[in-house]
Write a protein that binds this DNA or RNA. Structure first.
Lengths: 349, 349
DNA sequence: ATGAAAGCGCTAACAT
DNA sequence: ATGTTAGCGCTTTCAT
């Protein structure tokens, strides 16, 4: 076990009182320059670190940020949160916080975990991911006055302005992807999305509609909605292409669907395409999230700036935690950050 | 903020002393049945949770397990650790622990983080991943007497018996994969691996050699070593196939290399294969780790029982933490767990 | 600018 | 079987 160096040890060696050491650490400006340097030297020499548990008892601050880690649902999209998690751990450490993990199967059990965690480990704040309509988790934290930030907009009606959030502009991404295809000469550009109602999915679809509108293309009949699995994407793509042979490109709401679309686009059943007007041009496909799978199969995809998103989450949370403002006060005019995804171009488009 | 309920509140409402409440929680058998029930009722009623910080000051136990989260190096193989992490969080919670995350760029900075963490948050133990020859991290923790378990064998010479570890039997996996191919009629089965010297890579290669030997096949000239990237795998596969046209199947040390091999195996340059003795049979490929990419591209792969591995890590660590034995004592005869991977069969083999 | 005293919530030792 | 005392390491008054 590492030999415990307490504040008293530092004080003794530096020839000052315990209190002065504490001041040097917490209120440096109140200590004389010379004393400060001497104390800091001893701190370094002895390898002293403040004990969080003891500090927490006095200040009530644990320097812990809690976040849920999901089971890898689809497996393809799961990696997004994992990369976000890495960024969060990194940024948090720089800001003097550590990340505490928890799991939960659904919103209800997650709220139960909030209570548990708050009562026991007392994390200073939470980072919520996967926000959705009428998210009970946000309401609960808001209600208790627990500081938190969400990675993902609150998609509900009125909730928009009640807590700080960081998000990536999905519609800007799909619009950029669509424009990229338009620039490449495509006009019949389809969209593979999720069933209406999911904030994220609707938003990404909107970007495609907007870009098509900008080029004077009517999106009617050019989109399909399905659940997020490779097989579903393949089926939906096939259906869309069959019903409208003019389709030469597909923008997809996720890499999962895009990988499915790629299968469909390259399948033998589409051999007739070779007698098409553009025989040398296979159906272009663009996915969303730039997952490892996209990289492996050469799929053009939209990349979220996850590291930046994580850094912003920490900044926003730290602002609440360290600012004079309380969580409730900051809820009055919470900060929002909307980042732009970037298109990573590969063989598929 | 959740209203703080202390042990004193519970004691007052239940009409007992603080100490009795503490006893009910920590040494139930020393309290009379009736008192115990009454106290527990009040605990539930008031929603009391022990404050970890306060307990930690007394007991020195934080109920925290620290683990490093890696940047997704390759992106394909990265997902393995992420799935392990989820399992660890889950198992830890069940055992009364929480997972604390940290990042580090290399062994040296990881050791520095150990010091930092130990001095500040005082995690009860560590779970190390990615163990390798002469791992300085294990030595450091061993030296300081800090409890830890590794997910991965200590590959070094003498170190084998100095700390508890959990691992997956890579050579059993590649042997099973090779046997699967032999059973399917393949005889010229190649191996794509990493340069010699990495414990994991050498072990996986050994399984392939062993299985071939069992079938009386000479492995000479049938393997290639390369770094772990898709493009490298493709190049190595092409080289191997070109130099020995008899090769009809490939076992790979990772999904990254396997995906590359798949590209090579399906590339136009191999068209001559159609005039082969088995024209209907493309080159079979088997990967390792059963990553999302494997699933997406239909790659047969070896799946590690990550959830089980994580659970075993927690069990082993908890045994040290909660047993009477000290870390040092348990180091005298540490427990080892070796799990078997399973072959997930898909189109590629 | 520095020091002394008090107490955060809990549990290990020692009474009763 | 239950209660009392003390103190973990720190920071926040308050005094010097």
């Amino acid at each position: 076990m590492a030999d415990k160096v307490t504040i008293a040890d530092v004080a003794r060696v530096a020839g000052v009182s315990r209190q002065t050491v504490s001041n040097v650490l917490n209120t440096p400006d109140v200590v004389r320059e010379e004393t400060r340097r001497r104390v800091l030297d001893v701190v370094g020499e002895l390898g002293y670190r403040v004990n969080r548990a003891a500090r927490q008892m006095r200040t009530g601050r644990s320097q812990l940020i809690a976040i849920r880690i999901d089971p890898d649902r689809d497996g393809i999209n799961g990696s997004v949160l994992d990369r976000f998690l890495h960024g969060l751990t990194d940024s948090a450490a720089r800001a003097g916080y550590r990340v505490l993990l928890y799991t939960a199967d659904d919103d209800r059990s997650e709220v139960a975990t909030f209570e548990d965690l708050l009562g026991a480990y007392e994390p200073d704040g939470f980072v919520l991911t996967g926000t959705h309509h009428r998210d009970p988790r946000a309401s609960w934290l808001l209600d208790k006055g627990v500081p938190f930030v969400t990675f993902g907009r609150p998609w509900g009606e009125e909730a928009t302005t009640r807590h700080p959030w960081v998000d990536v502009d999905g519609s800007a991404g799909t619009a950029a992807a669509t424009r990229h295809l338009l620039d490449a000469g495509h006009t019949h550009i389809g969209f593979l999305g999720w069933p209406a109602g999911s904030g994220v999915g609707d938003d990404r679809r909107a970007g495609w509609v907007r870009a098509l509108a900008g080029a004077g293309v009517d999106p009617t009949g050019l989109s399909r909605a399905t659940s997020d699995a490779v097989a579903d994407g393949e089926a939906a793509a096939r259906d869309l292409i069959d019903s409208d042979p003019g389709v030469t490109a597909l923008v997809c709401v996720s890499d999962s669907l895009a990988v499915g679309a790629l299968h469909a686009a390259r399948s033998p059943g589409l051999a007739w395409r070779e007698e098409d007007t553009r025989p040398d041009l296979p159906i272009a496909v663009i996915g969303f999230d730039d997952t490892p799978v996209a990289k492996a199969v050469g799929l053009t995809s939209l990349s979220q700036p996850l590291k930046e998103a994580a850094a912003n989450c920490v900044t926003l949370l730290a602002r609440i935690l360290e600012g004079t403002e309380t969580a409730r006060a900051s809820a009055a005019s919470p900060a929002h950050v909307l980042l732009e995804p970037s298109l990573v171009i590969r063989q598929s488009a």
